[in-house]
Amino acid sequence: MIQLIVRRSVASLITIWAVFTISFFVIRSAPGGPFDAERDPPEAVKAAIEARYQLDAPLWQQYLNQGWSWLTLNPGPSLRQPDHDVATILAAGIPASFLLGTLALLLGIILGTILGVIAAWQQDRWPDRVITLFASMGISLPLYVIAGLLILLFAFHLPWLPPAGWTAASSAVLPIICLALAPAAQVARLLRSGLIEASQEDYARTARSKGRGVVGTLLFHCLRPASIPVTSTLGPTAAAMLTGSLVIEQIFAIPGVGMHFIQGAMNRDYPLVLGAVLLYTILLQILTLLGDLLMGWLDPRARVEE
């Protein structure tokens, strides 16, 4: 296992460097610059601002400067919010995003597991159909529609929760539910088909023939093998959820990091975009590795292949 971790860590470092390099040149090739506005400042002023942020240097030099600044964990100020360091901006958004992402992921996994087991148990009966419909809606309905309906219901018709803001634990409830729906639907769908498939295996039939009930067979014999496809998708899903959601952050006015991915690029805030991309990439690498380790633990075959 240690060998696997070391090998994967080296590969991750190369991946992170490649992502950084590609992101740097892609964002720099986008038309327009960070200081463009409807009211154009005079050229001399623009040049002075660009010089302040070393944007007047050759591109390769800027690439090296940026790389070094990230290596030394000193990425410098944001171009749009020069009163703040990029690291501070990202760090300020991480607690809210991590809180929402973690809880939504947990809720999604628990809800999805329960629904997946029920759907497999009641295969082709009405509970299965209802759950399958829910899963399709959870995956296909846009977040802003779900969020709008929940706000209408729980903030205005039943005034139990605030419609937006980040002022108390209650403000996290609606966004968590919204964020949890998609992973819940995904887990339910994958688990249902996995359980149905596993329940036709010899070991499941043997268990049934020995008197184990349907639910017992599903839970004690089939759930573990059926979890393998779910686990393989968890790493990327977790990385996406922990780094926030632009839509949810906008609708619920949550000070997370999700907005920086889009707004940073829209504002051509180069250091902020690179910071956001690096944050996502590093998380993705770590979580994918964790997912793989978890899969090896769940499925001995995966361990042997590794």
């Binding site: 996994i109 597991t113 839970l219 004690f220 759930l223 573990r224 979890s227 779910v230 686990t231 968890l234 978890l294 633990w297 769940l298």
Partner: peptide, 9 residues
């Protein structure tokens, strides 16, 4: 033990 493991740890 199986239940514990199966519920995705």
């Amino acid at each position: 033990k199986n239940i514990g493991q199966s519920l995705l740890s």
